[in-house]
């Protein structure tokens, strides 16, 4: 593997946790301020993509294994769908906000606006896993390389 300079490795190691926390903030406050599940999820993924770029796919695959990222992707989609179907059953319409009575919309209050934060979390989880997987796969595929071998070594890690 190509060796990266010490500065890049060290700085990215410091930066990644802050990026991750910022992503969480964007997701959790998505119903109160600009942001939400999609941008937050991309930011979460970018923390891991930074590790992928600076310290190699082995290290990134160790922090977020392929199978776990795939599970995030599926679980996020399923939670979103479950909220939609619960709205169908309880609220009378697909994706109806059936938690609105319990947590009505209030400015600056984290526990508000019913199902929207739940959906933001679900989307965030899905995008986190999905974007990371997409970039990971792109990093494995090379012209002339053997894509299966790259993936297998990662699954073994």
């Amino acid at each position: 593997m190509m060796t990266r300079s010490l500065i890049v490795q060290r700085i990215s190691r410091w930066l990644a946790p802050f990026i991750f926390i910022y992503g969480l903030q964007v997701i959790l406050y998505g119903h109160l301020s600009p942001g939400g599940g999609f941008p937050g999820g991309v930011i979460l993924a970018s923390a891991f993509i930074l590790i992928l770029i600076s310290r190699g796919k082995e290290e990134a695959g160790r922090r977020l294994p392929l199978s776990r990222a795939g599970r995030f992707d599926n679980t996020g989609a399923l939670v979103f769908l479950a909220v939609g179907l619960l709205g169908f059953v309880l609220g009378g319409s697909f994706l109806a906000n059936f938690l609105q009575r319990l947590f009505p919309g209030r400015p600056f209050s984290l526990l508000s606006s019913g199902t929207i934060p739940v959906n933001n979390l679900a989307i965030g989880l899905k995008i986190w896993g999905g974007i990371f997987l997409a970039v990971l796969f792109l990093s494995v595929l090379r012209v002339g390389g053997d894509p299966d071998r790259g993936l297998k070594t990662m699954e073994e890690e």
Binding site: R71, N74, L78, L81, G84, L85, F88, S93, L95
Partner: peptide, 21 residues
């Protein structure tokens, strides 16, 4: 027509449950 969203939601749910197993 209240059943319309199921036409999309049901197969979508199946598509995301299956890769978990």
């Amino acid at each position: 027509t209240a059943l319309l969203p199921l036409m999309v939601a049901l197969p979508l749910g199946a598509a995301f449950v299956l890769p978990l197993f």
